[in-house]
Design a binder for these strands. Structure first.
Lengths: 212, 212, 212, 212
DNA sequence: AATGAATGAGAATTCATTCAT
DNA sequence: CATGAATGAATTCTCATTCAT
């Protein structure tokens, strides 16, 4: 019984940081870092202001934690994707993007890119951390698909590095639109992803007829 | 001589609001609205903080002015583009995008989209204003090109509304990257635009051979 | 064995208040009352912050206890000194001061005067308590020595009440210096006490020649 | 007229720091640094809390300024004393101490030693600054008097360095008592100084008979 | 018009105190 | 008894806004 209650308490304590991070993520995304009050973060997490400081030593530290924690699922997903890297590269690209959307499109994690866009200027080290851990790795995955596609004659010749950016841009914007210019953002993500994939795959693919 | 200096002073006086807006734009882009101090805006514009209040009744009003002023060139450019709306639609689309980049890519105006992304949640009316005046109009132009291209058999069939968004996304991201996640932002815009246009035009175009 | 551990625990339990007081004394002396955190006091005493409140109902109460506890040895020493109050008064004065230094000079108790100097303004009742129990009694002892010395023709005539203060000042400062302006405090207490006793005894004593 | 009002304003602005420092000195002496609220300092200086930050960037900076400003009169007085350093050394010592009392005994500056005693542990750099600029210089002056007195055969032989401390202690304590253990502080400074000077001069002086 | 000193409401942070376990 | 997580009042510090000059 005592063990039980201790565990309960311990479980609660262990959950606190995550709860606070989740609350903070939501508010940072919605309002921006500077405009978010720690009072509100604490309230949203259902604790008092002081409790926040039991787990994070400053607002900046909380920000950092939000990003670091937010990155985990992305990295994990990336690792998973790596394993199936074989076969038809067009299909692979499609798979990659769809997974990306599943991960980011309907979960709180999706707010991370918006935060990084808005706040990277004020948090250079965090931006670097994000760049090294998320952007670089994501680009690595995409690079593989594109290069193999070109080599296999599936894709047209291209400037791979630049094309990576061009291809990522629409899915990033889709995410960003979720949280910005909200009224106009009433987009249908399914249709968007469909149009997007149709467009870029068509744009990348070697035209069969060309060979004729 | 006195006349001269008066004119100079008057000119300067009349320029004040613009100077302040320019300074504010730069800082809002760099740091975000909430993190920007009016002290710094005034200092950057070379006036005292009190002077700022002679021209803008609050920080919010300054924000609004920054957006409104920032929109003028965009609207003007849009009007110009409208006039040449005939001929080859692929070329027109290319022209449209290149003009867009010229307008946004190397001028302070380019910061506006980043600001709107970051702050629209905190300024719903401004966001609506921006939506009604910039986004809607921009989409109108693009819609015309795309629809005429489809009708003319130049472009493949498509969901036009969604495709507008997909097509705009990469150029928006290019702009946003200029001000965010700085390290990764070391992109070559020329190459980027080239790859981008190549990809989407190829993606949009009816395959000539298909007709065979 | 159980008995043993219970005794141990009991002994420890009974020692708790003293340990807490000792820890508090050290920190109050070092940092001052307001700047001392109860967290640190508890940590230094090896208990949790909550435990502190089992023994003291508030930070103020702890302060009071520190002073009261700190006064015991001083009072005890005073009582002892009273018993040998006879014989050569110069020697007695010397003895008095040397004992005082033994008591205060190398023990934690020595911090009490510094605390009283720093905090008496914020704790008037404690200051009164200290005054009534320590200062008044100490002065009583000194008064006896001085008055008897004057009566016996050993000491010159003097304003006894004032001289008490003048005589006490150097030993008090010696103690205070131990904890203040630390760098300059590299004084040799032995030499200091020697010079001090030499000076004041010489200053108090009737000049032999006067008799001539 | 404009010139006049500008000067008035300027004069006011220039006076602010001193007014704030004076208010802070008083409260720091009375309550200690940590227990003094900036609100109260500002109120006592007749300004708002925010104004304080126009002149001092933090509470610590204010503390430093209080000490630095408080030291000026002491240093100035020291410089003046240096000039009359000739003649009878006993008289010189008397003069030195009386001047010291005039300077510290009835002015706010007198609080400085108490502050240094209480807070030096928390402000090591300030303590060093104080040591280098006040204590060292004061000791230098006293050393001269004592050494010359010994050389001239006026004073008995002594350990000069230690005696400096012993001699300074009573006047320091007199000052400290002004602000501490208030009830016991009801001392008559005139009588105290008289007894003090009588005692130490008698204690220092060569006994006339010795010459016999 | 322009200035910049002054303000005070508001936000981050600290820490004595409480209380469920 | 003992713990340490949680609290929230109190304090430092910031900055948009005002206003006398």
């Amino acid at each position: 019984m005592k063990t039980n209650s201790i565990q309960k308490s311990r479980r609660r304590k262990e959950a606190r940081p995550s709860e606070l991070i989740a609350a903070a993520l939501e508010l940072f995304v919605e309002r921006g870092f500077a405009a978010t009050k720690l009072d509100d973060v604490a309230a949203k997490a259902g604790v008092s202001k002081g409790t926040l400081y039991l787990y994070f030593e400053s607002k900046d530290a909380l920000f950092k934690a939000v990003i670091e924690q937010g990155i985990f699922p992305i990295l994990a997903e990336g690792a998973t994707l790596l394993q199936q890297f074989e076969g038809n590269n067009a299909a692979l690209l499609k798979e990659f993007m769809q997974r990306w959307w599943q991960l980011m499109g309907n979960t709180p994690v999706g707010g991370i890119p918006k935060i990084m866009i808005s706040e990277s200027g004020n948090f250079p080290e965090v931006a670097n951390y994000y760049y090294d851990n998320v952007i670089v790795r994501g680009r690595d995955l995409l690079r593989q698909v594109l290069e193999r596609g070109v080599t296999a004659g599936e894709f047209r010749d291209m400037d791979v590095e630049t094309t990576i950016d061009v291809i990522m841009a629409p899915v990033l914007m889709l995410i960003v639109w979720r949280y910005s210019v909200a009224p106009c953002g009433t987009k249908d993500p399914e249709k968007y992803m469909k149009s997007y994939l149709d467009l870029i795959l068509n744009g990348l693919m070697m035209k069969k007829e060309t060979r004729l």
